[in-house]
Simulated scan of single mutants.
Amino acid sequence: MSVTRERRERERAQRHQLIITAARELAEAEGWEAVTTRRLAERVEYSQPVLYSHFSGKDAIVRAVAIDGFGELAAHLHRARPADPEPRQALHAVCRAYLEFATERPALYQAMFVLPTDVKFAHAETPPPLRAAFDEFVSCFRPDDARRELFAEVVWSALHGMAVLSDSGRIPSDGQEERLDFLVARFSDTPG
C-alpha cells in the first residue's frame, strides 16, 4: 500500500471517529433529537456530502455510536470484574458497573439500547464489541453450566429494565442497590 493511500485511509478513519464523537457530545448536551447531519457537519467542520460519504444518515450514525458504546461497556465491565472472584462477587461487580455505565452515559445508553438500530443481539451478526460486553456477564457463571448464556441474558434484561425505569423516574433510584442485591442473590444461588 502506498504512503499516500495509507495517509488517506488514516485520515478517513479519523474523520469517521470525529463524526461519532461529535454525535455523542451533541446528544449528551442536547439530546438525540438535536443530532442532525446539518448540525454534525457544522460541528466537525466538514460538508454534509463528506458526512454522507461516511454514514448514510442519522440511523447509521446512531448505530456507529452504539457499537462504539458497546466497546466501552465491555471494557468497563471487564475492569469491574475481579480477576479471581467467587461467582457472586463477580456478578455483583459486573451488574453494578452496568448500572453505573447506564447512569453516567445516558445518551450513549439510549443509542445502544433505546433508539431503533439494526444492531442484532444474540445473533450471528452481533458486533464483536456487543458480544464482548455480553461475555463479561457470561463469565460470571460457572463454565460447566450449559445455561450460563441464558442466565446472562436474563440478568442483562433485568438490569436494562432497572436502568430504564430508574432513569425515567418510574421506579425510585434510591432502591437500586436493594434491587441489585436481590437480583444477584437469585442468580448466584441458582443450582447447577
Rank of each mutant, 00 (worst) to 15 (best):
L159R: 02
L180D: 09
R38K: 12
R186N: 13
E9I: 07
D167M: 11
G69N: 10
L77E: 09
C140F: 06
P106W: 07
G175E: 15
L73C: 08
R96N: 10
F134S: 03
R39N: 02
L73D: 01
P49C: 07
A64Q: 06
E136L: 02
H76L: 05
A185R: 11
D84L: 10
P116T: 10
D144W: 07
M1F: 05
E153K: 11
P85N: 07
A75E: 15
P129K: 04
A152G: 09
H54Y: 08
A83H: 10
R142T: 11
R147M: 13
S173W: 09
S166E: 14
S56K: 13
G161M: 06
T21H: 13
E42V: 06
R39V: 14
R39L: 14
P85A: 14
A22C: 10
A163M: 09
V50T: 15
A23S: 14
I20F: 05
E72N: 09
I20T: 07
A152D: 08
T103Y: 02
R186W: 09
M162P: 04
V164E: 12
I61W: 03
G192A: 14
P85R: 12
P129Y: 03
R147P: 01
G69R: 04
T4Y: 09
L180A: 05
T21V: 11
R12L: 08
Y46L: 15
R38S: 14
L51R: 03
A74F: 03
E104D: 15
E100M: 07
R24D: 03
C95W: 08
L51F: 12
F121P: 01
A75Y: 01
R8F: 10
R39A: 15
A124S: 13
S53C: 04
E136T: 03
K58M: 05
L40W: 04
R131N: 01
V94G: 00
A124W: 13
E11M: 12
F121A: 15
E33C: 02
A158P: 02
R43H: 10
F134L: 11
T36C: 10
A27C: 07
A90Q: 05
A22Q: 08
S47T: 15
L18W: 02
L183Y: 01
L180F: 10
Q89M: 09
A75P: 03
A64D: 03
C140N: 08
H160E: 11
A66C: 01
D144C: 08
A74T: 02
Q48G: 05
V94A: 08
V44H: 05
